[in-house]
Design a protein around this nucleic acid. Structure first.
Lengths: 179, 179
DNA sequence: TCAGATTCATCAAACATTTGATCATTTGGG
DNA sequence: CCCAAATGATCAAATGTTTGATGAATCTGA
């Protein structure tokens, strides 16, 4: 059949992007390959970094990646309403509600009813939660450094600029957000 | 206490990166802020794009994001062993095993014992699976295009180059991979 | 003031993921 | 040739995510 682009003998997580883009163009000539390559590469790079951080730093310390994100937000922004925590940690409210059951059970976070609005929750870190994020984040940041070394300083800056520009464009793209 | 960097009134998923980097430097002066900003921005950008694609394109069509990744790999690379599918789709073998229960039940994929090695599985798309990915991917790619428009063509190229360089560096960083 | 619309959190069901264990098959070295 | 080690898939238990529904508190406008 396809004498064009038979899958190479060894297709890997990395090399699949190139292969997929070529193959998709054959199957669907109208495909926007630049956009395809960009999204595919973005999600793969992110997935690699996150998997590495989660499996080498956080899981061994008893935290999942989502758990880390929440504790991290509470560490830096201080006690706040659950809605805000969900927003800035990138967790939906329903997911946060479930996540808090674990974090509270493990003694890292406390839930309290907000005084000004009895529907709302006020979240804060316990002493133990504070200790967990301090130790965890140091290791986390060391690992981030190891990754970052792959790029020159000006390249890191440029990468961040491009990603920010991409996120800023989400408004025009009418992107859907978590709620 | 902290008269330095009190959280701004409205902290959002976007603006949290800047705030977090400033605040982390106060709390832990030794932090590598460039690496921190890079990883934080990368994971957020990716999460936004993926959430948008999943919730606007795939879930409404009855596919989850992980399900899409697997079907997508099978579409482009053709029938292959489950181990390879796991590799190139970025799924662990255990997760793929569970995922296949759903995909097979929904009639999108078939599992068959490989002839040359009776431990191995051969995966292939059904007609229905082929139809699903064809329609789904068109919509997926249109959405990717909308995102990509935020960047100039040369910026897209540069973003991809930087992400690839980052991934290539994972070897030096001794990153952990899914298995 | 008060009824309807909103907002906040939670629940429920289905699904996917992680780590670590288990089972079957295949491979490799003595 | 045969047994130990390695490999492929699955299982089990714990966790987190999604969408859509529900309950409770607050807000709004007539």
């Amino acid at each position: 059949m396809t004498h064009e682009s038979a899958p190479p003998d060894e297709l890997t997580f990395w090399s699949f992007v190139d292969f997929a883009v070529r193959k998709a163009r054959q199957e669907l000539p109208a495909v926007d390959t630049d956009a395809m390559r960009m999204a595919l590469t973005l999600s793969r790079a992110s997935s690699m970094v996150i998997y590495d951080l989660e499996s080498t730093v956080h899981r061994p310390r008893g935290l999942t990646w989502p758990g880390f994100r929440v504790i991290f937000a509470l560490w830096l922004a201080g006690p706040m309403e659950a809605k805000t925590t969900a927003d800035i940690s990138g967790t939906s409210r329903a997911a946060l509600s479930a996540l808090l059951n674990t974090l509270e059970r493990d003694g890292l976070v406390v839930r309290e009813r907000a005084s000004h609005d009895r529907r709302a929750l006020q979240l804060s870190l316990t002493e133990e939660g504070y200790g967990a994020i301090l130790g965890g984040f140091r290791a986390h940041n060391r690992r981030e450094s190891a990754w970052a070394e792959a790029l020159e300083p000006h390249e890191r800056t440029e990468l961040v600029r491009l990603l920010n520009k991409l996120m800023a464009g989400s408004t025009d793209a009418k992107a859907k957000f978590r709620s």
